[in-house]
Design a protein around this nucleic acid. Sequence first.
DNA 1: GATGAATGAGGTTTCATTCAT
DNA 2: TATGAATGAAACCTCATTCAT
Lengths: 188, 188, 188, 188
Amino acid sequence: MARVKSPEKRAAILRAAVRELANSGLGAPTAKIAARAGVAAGTLFTYFPNKQALLNELYLELKGEAYARVNAKFPGKGSLERRARHIWSSYLEWAIEFPEKRKVSVQLNVSDVITHDTREKTAAAGGAVRQTLSELDRRAALRGLPAGFASATMSALQEAAMEFVGREPRRRKHLMARGFQAFWRALR
Amino acid sequence: MARVKSPEKRAAILRAAVRELANSGLGAPTAKIAARAGVAAGTLFTYFPNKQALLNELYLELKGEAYARVNAKFPGKGSLERRARHIWSSYLEWAIEFPEKRKVSVQLNVSDVITHDTREKTAAAGGAVRQTLSELDRRAALRGLPAGFASATMSALQEAAMEFVGREPRRRKHLMARGFQAFWRALR
Amino acid sequence: MARVKSPEKRAAILRAAVRELANSGLGAPTAKIAARAGVAAGTLFTYFPNKQALLNELYLELKGEAYARVNAKFPGKGSLERRARHIWSSYLEWAIEFPEKRKVSVQLNVSDVITHDTREKTAAAGGAVRQTLSELDRRAALRGLPAGFASATMSALQEAAMEFVGREPRRRKHLMARGFQAFWRALR
Amino acid sequence: MARVKSPEKRAAILRAAVRELANSGLGAPTAKIAARAGVAAGTLFTYFPNKQALLNELYLELKGEAYARVNAKFPGKGSLERRARHIWSSYLEWAIEFPEKRKVSVQLNVSDVITHDTREKTAAAGGAVRQTLSELDRRAALRGLPAGFASATMSALQEAAMEFVGREPRRRKHLMARGFQAFWRALR
DNA sequence: GATGAATGAGGTTTCATTCAT
DNA sequence: TATGAATGAAACCTCATTCAT
């Protein structure tokens, strides 16, 4: 039987990609990524057909990881506010814990390398989150705002919150709480 | 005296850069930018010493243009809400009118090509906006939020609002108004 | 393991570099060197990190080759004159046999591309030659001439001799002998 | 009447060329030469049809200057040794006084930019020097050395002497005298 | 499957020279 | 004549991808 593609190597490549992309932007050479992952330049292409595919898979991975955080211990039966707060906090904690991952995720998001297909997949991975956010949307709708506005607002405000937590890590808890308050009021 | 460096050509290059960058990301070749601007490849480098400089100047130009929009007809003596609403609307209108400019501006912003120096210059160009936003900040501070949170929130929510206006251009007026309402409530 | 970096290819590149540099000076394009070596333009850079490095390694190679000639059959136990004559003749023969190599070596020498480091390495490669030349120097010192003058004089006179041997190859033996005589008398 | 080409500008360009070429080698850009000369890039080409012509004229100029030094106060009626010593010293003094000029002269000499025509012109400019050197050659010929060997030897030994004078400028007089002694003995 | 040398298209930038002013 | 902007060929080098080992 032939050797089998090792999940460890695949993971190492993705990990290395995060580091390199965070440092050098999307132009980071595949050779450097491979080197940091401890594999040969060519090996990268047995795990990913080309760079674009690598970037798309990385994007999925990052989004998936963030969603996993949110879904863990999700208070499925809590009030809408309780659930929204959970989403707010758990995602924010992930982003703060892994600033490089978040940075790369943002860069990939605004770039043109992410295919429509990939975007659909991440949307699908929403799970419990989607449900909650659409409930919020329905509330927002009463106020004449379109579907999706709630989640867009949340991520927009999280963006803002993150920057400040980055500057004053000590006040993290406080800033996260206040940030959520602002969010909640925005949609009230 | 010989031919004089023409502001038109400079402007054409910047205009072409917006188009190319919007289409192909920051990796867009200088040769293509020059071609679209109707000048020779080498000419680009008589107007900008290198690609990085071009991108930085472009960023300044875009930010400057947006600020100019906001500063025009700024109701310097209006209430805080009035002034905030003006900033909200006028910037949003610019962004909606020139989606490519906005896209490129965002891409430049998250990339690493923008120097510290450039960022300082854009900050300095704030003018009337800064004054208003810092008033907002002082209010926000009462709510335990850090300095700068107000403007970060505004631009984050504008980001969200833009997306929706893009999808439903007909409801532009309505969405802009509602979006501001959300913003205003967030900071109450 | 993948293909292994082939010494033949490296040698072919250096050989091609000699030809191209002899023809077109130090400005000879790396692309032409690669083409003459029968490799792709990019391949040159897997053997040498950049053009300057290529030129420095070439210089080392040429100097090394010349020294190897001299060191072969070096009459380590002969009289000072005998040893000096050997150096004189064997180097000269090399230079006459490979005029392009010598030309390139001279060009590299007066240019600014050769690093201090490279110069030190060639000096270190001197071996038996250095020993003999410093003996000569000690004799020269008696005549009030500074250390290093002997070897400088030798290479300077060889330079002159070479030109004439080039013009009248038939009288090579004779000219080499007379040239050495002039050298020997200069330092008596 | 049209403006006339100013000899001052021509001279300034040649002067600037020496500086630039000494610093950056023959690849020094014409634009930098022009800038250092205080003229516009294009002006350079009204004084010299192209770069190669500039380099050739510069070579002539440098050789001419050196010859002028030698011809001044030439002891036309002195003994052969007296005349040879004058050539030796006066050229050496020039070379020591203007190290950049000498460096550039050497670089031009080994390069391929100097045309056959230019070389003939410099040879022709020899004047009194040629006469003396050919007398030396006739003496050398008795020793079985070819025509031209005397002058080749002289410039070769001067090359060596210069290096050492450069290192110990204080002993200039002494080194020049001893160097000539070595030269004289070589041909004795 | 793993390796890394080989490839060559393509990127940025330089520069001699031209030419409108 | 003087200027310096404009030109575009060409230089060096990078890099995604292929493929012999």
